[in-house]
Amino acid sequence: MISAIANKIFQRAIEDYHRHDDIDHPIENPYNSLSLEHLLYLKCWIDTVQWHMEDVVRNPDITPEEGLNWKRRIDKQNQIRTDTVEYIDSYYLQEYSDVRAKEHAHINTESPAWAIDRLSILALKIYHMNLEANRIDADQAHIASCKSKLDVLLEQRKDLSQSIDELLTDIAAGNKYMKVYKQMKMYNDPSLNPVLYKKTP
């Protein structure tokens, strides 16, 4: 099932990142560039980098100039994340291009790739909540709270993994079909963001 493969790859990407724990460390994707595995590793690496950017920008001692710089980097990273999700959906559109949808087939509330996006974020939450649940410098109330939250996250990953596998099985069988919409993030487009296109040259 794809969820088991994805969860394993996400864990590897997160662990690979934390060997250096450096936002600017170059990615070393171990998978064939034409494979789904390559996209999954890339997706989680992007998420991991953005996770740490979000930590940095919340530093109360950060200067306004530094904060603005990080905000712009986060915006850029978020666009790369969105593009990568759409690449994963393109993979699945090609994968199931020969499947004929049954007469009463229907679409899902989200595409496979956006569900996988949530699974990648869950992997990060689980990794970092596990760190918090095992901190030696935290009090017992903190540890207990984090362990309780970790249990919920693990259950959530189990449920989401099952849902993704069932969705892909339904698509392959023609019981559901994919219908993908581009995100069209208007604030990143100079022709659609009025602050940008109304700017005096």
Rank of each mutant, 00 (worst) to 15 (best):
D22M: 00
C44S: 02
P60D: 02
Q183A: 15
R157K: 12
D165I: 05
P201R: 08
D137M: 00
L131I: 07
A138Q: 04
M129P: 00
Y127T: 01
A101V: 13
W114K: 05
K179L: 11
E103A: 08
E54S: 02
K76I: 14
I88S: 10
D159L: 14
E166N: 11
N7P: 03
N7Y: 04
L160I: 13
I2G: 07
Y187S: 14
Y91G: 10
N32D: 15
V180H: 10
S145Y: 14
P30Y: 02
N130W: 02
M186K: 11
I121M: 02
L160N: 03
A105D: 08
Y17V: 00
V49C: 01
I171Y: 15
L34R: 13
R118W: 05
M178A: 10
N108M: 15
A101D: 11
Q50V: 03
I2F: 12
E155S: 06
N188W: 15
R81W: 09
S35E: 12
Y177S: 12
M178S: 06
S191Y: 04
W45T: 01
D165F: 08
A123K: 01
R135Y: 05
E132D: 10
P112T: 07
K149H: 09
L119E: 04
R135L: 08
E65A: 15
I46K: 04
S163Q: 09
I171G: 10
P112Y: 08
Q79A: 12
R81S: 13
M184S: 10
K179G: 04
L93F: 12
S161D: 05
L122E: 03
S97G: 09
T84H: 06
C146M: 09
D75F: 13
I62M: 08
P60C: 01
N7A: 05
C44M: 02
R72Y: 13
N32S: 13
N175W: 09
K125E: 02
E65W: 07
S35A: 13
I2N: 11
D151K: 04
D189P: 03
L150E: 03
S161L: 07
M129F: 00
K176E: 13
H18V: 00
I88R: 10
N29M: 03
W45F: 02
L124Y: 01
Y197H: 13
R72N: 14
F10Q: 03
K199P: 03
E65K: 12
Q140M: 13
D137C: 00
E166L: 12
